[in-house]
């Protein structure tokens, strides 16, 4: 990535602001988090669904996803971090999540979805690997008005995050 193309934190804030605007208008549930002030601002959203094991070995489970879109200062990209928990508040571990998610059944699942410390909260979260993010987001830097939305719409559905059509209109 050349320097003029790099993904800055200002660009991230700009993109995220737009997401919040659209979310508020359509009651989509994204909210702004300002734990350590404006510089480390990030957005979160919760959604619930039923997970089904494609092999039918595990029982159906109703889970809550807690999505975080955060800027990662070391990788200089936004990351999609999330936690998944069952109704009693216990988390699904990375390996358990893999079992339920048929998208990660190929050989490179380890490179795609991993567990990393949240850049702001410094607690472990399931995370789409930032190395991959860089590959995906790079083309959007030139061609999209909101690379964060374009990237989320590309990768989100792998982890059950759906974006309303309205977001894509602002890209």
């Amino acid at each position: 990535m050349s320097s003029e193309q790099s993904f800055t934190i200002d660009l991230f804030h700009c993109c995220v602001k737009k997401i919040l605007e659209i979310s508020d208008k359509y009651q989509d549930g994204w909210s702004l988090q300002l734990k350590d002030g404006i510089a480390s601002a990030y957005i979160t959203k919760k959604s619930r669904c039923t997970l089904e094991d494609p092999d039918k070995k595990l029982p159906l489970v109703i889970v809550t996803f807690d999505y975080h879109v955060v800027y990662h200062p070391s990788y200089c990209v936004p990351v999609l971090a999330f936690n998944v928990w069952k109704q009693d508040g216990t988390f699904l571990a990375l390996e358990e999540f893999w079992k339920y998610n048929h998208h990660f059944r190929n050989s490179n699942m380890f490179d795609t979805l991993t567990q990393l410390d949240h850049p702001v909260l410094q607690r472990p979260f399931l995370t789409l690997h930032p190395c991959r993010t860089k590959e995906i987001i790079e083309p959007f830097l030139e061609h999209s008005k909101n690379p964060v939305i374009s990237w989320l719409s590309t990768v989100g559905h792998f982890v059950y995050l759906d974006l309303l059509q309205e977001y894509l209109k602002s890209c």
Binding site: Q27, D28, G29, K45, K46, S47, R48, C49, T50, I62, T64, Q87
Partner: peptide, 14 residues
């Protein structure tokens, strides 16, 4: 409580 963003068919109180 919200049924927005709930794709399961069970009403869930958080």
């Amino acid at each position: 409580f919200s049924n927005i963003n709930n794709k399961s068919n069970v009403p869930l109180l958080e």
